[in-house]
Simulated scan of single mutants.
Amino acid sequence: MDQARYEDTARRFAEQAAGAARLREGIAGLKGSARNGDGSVTVTVAPSGAVLGLQLSPAAMNRSHTQLTQEILGAIRAAQQQAAAAMEQLVRPYVGDEQYERFQTAFRAHAPAVEPIGPSAPPPPAALPTPHSPAPVRAARPVDDDGDFTDESIYKSRP
């Protein structure tokens, strides 16, 4: 390989490495965030869909548990869609259309998408873990026990 071709290859490699580093930094800082209609529920997610933050305003507490669950799940889905769109906008220009599909497949393999479950009836009490029983209460030592593991006390007078 001649010197000019080698330098050109090394320059392109350095440019690609710098681009990959910028891409990795961009992905690391990427988040999606969404609010419900009245702003009482705010969710922040990572590109993988993992929930990073959940904020509930006092107004969120005016809902039933079922309504609040739906609001939270809706905000999570919207934040995940926002994060996915931001990911595509960031990555697609670097890798191109064909490679973006491969990138998504690889990314999903490391962070599989799962649908959150909706509200359901609470589990029966028998299915819930039981709290630990309290520690056994130790019997108090007799007043004349000096703690030397014998029946005789050092406090008794000697003959």
Rank of each mutant, 00 (worst) to 15 (best):
N36E: 04
S64A: 11
A140P: 05
V95P: 05
A28E: 13
F107N: 03
Q89F: 08
M1W: 10
F103I: 03
A121G: 01
S57I: 07
Q89T: 13
G118Q: 09
G39R: 04
G39T: 02
R12E: 14
R158I: 07
I72N: 01
A79F: 03
S48T: 15
I154W: 05
A20W: 03
P119D: 04
P124R: 11
V41Y: 02
A135F: 11
P125M: 07
T9A: 15
A86R: 05
F107V: 11
A21D: 15
I72H: 02
G37E: 06
I76E: 05
G49M: 03
A28N: 07
A127Q: 13
P93A: 14
E152V: 08
T105H: 11
V114D: 12
A78F: 02
D8M: 09
R63M: 00
V137Q: 15
P131D: 14
A85V: 07
D38S: 15
S33D: 10
A85F: 04
L56D: 06
P112G: 01
P116H: 01
G53A: 13
D148H: 07
A126L: 08
S133Y: 01
K156L: 06
D97V: 03
A127I: 01
Y6C: 01
R102Y: 12
E71W: 08
Q104D: 07
I72K: 01
P119V: 05
E7S: 03
Q80L: 00
G32A: 07
G49Y: 01
P136V: 05
A21R: 12
I72G: 00
A28M: 06
T42I: 02
A75I: 11
G147H: 04
L68M: 10
A14D: 14
R108D: 10
D2R: 09
Y155G: 13
P134T: 02
S153N: 09
N36K: 05
P131K: 11
A17W: 02
D144T: 14
Q89M: 12
P112I: 03
E71Q: 14
R138K: 14
A139L: 14
R77M: 00
A28I: 08
D146F: 09
P131L: 14
R108V: 00
R77H: 10
R5C: 05
P112K: 03
D148Y: 06
E15F: 12
G19R: 04
T42S: 13
P159L: 03
T66C: 00
G53R: 13
Q81V: 06
R108L: 09
T69W: 01
R5F: 05
S133D: 10
L23Q: 09
Y94W: 09
A139I: 11
